[in-house]
Amino acid sequence: MRCKTVRNELDRFARQELAPRMREQVEAHLIECAGCRRHLARQERLVNLLTGLPQPPAVPEGFSDHLRAVARERQAARRPVPGSLRRRRWLLPSTSVGKKAAQAAALAGGLLIGLFMGQQTWRSAHPSLPQQTMHADPVAVYQLDYLTDAPGGSLAQSFLSLTGTPSHDGT
């Protein structure tokens, strides 16, 4: 066994906490190694110095009684006062009311989403209406009738021909 390993175990060795096999190995090493024996002796002197310190003062008088009293107070504070629960039900909205409100909100939200999706579906099933809107005569819609009075080849006529709407004069 190496000295470093043995010295790590000396604290437990001195307190007889090592397993028998390890204890035998440490003992065998200590017989041969004067350095580790000195280390053990020094460590034991240190522990004696530590344990030689005076004992702490006794637990203060009435410590446990005081603690029990505090515990009793805490327990009493936590225990509900009879009748208080009923009053609270009158004063505050109960959890079931809150739950019902949440359910109603969820239902209303669901209905709105359903309505929106239904509208989309209805529009895709009846494409004629939006197409009509798209192909409505922009001249009529946006009241551009005065442009049709412009002379042929003018910028206004070019714009009307670009919009793809048949001209009002039949061309």
Binding site: P56, F63, H66, L67, V70, A71, R74
Partner: peptide, 14 residues
């Protein structure tokens, strides 16, 4: 030490 010991026991109770 008294504060700590007392608080420790109350935490154990809680």
């Amino acid at each position: 030490a008294e504060d700590v010991a007392q608080e420790a026991f109350l935490r154990i109770l809680d």
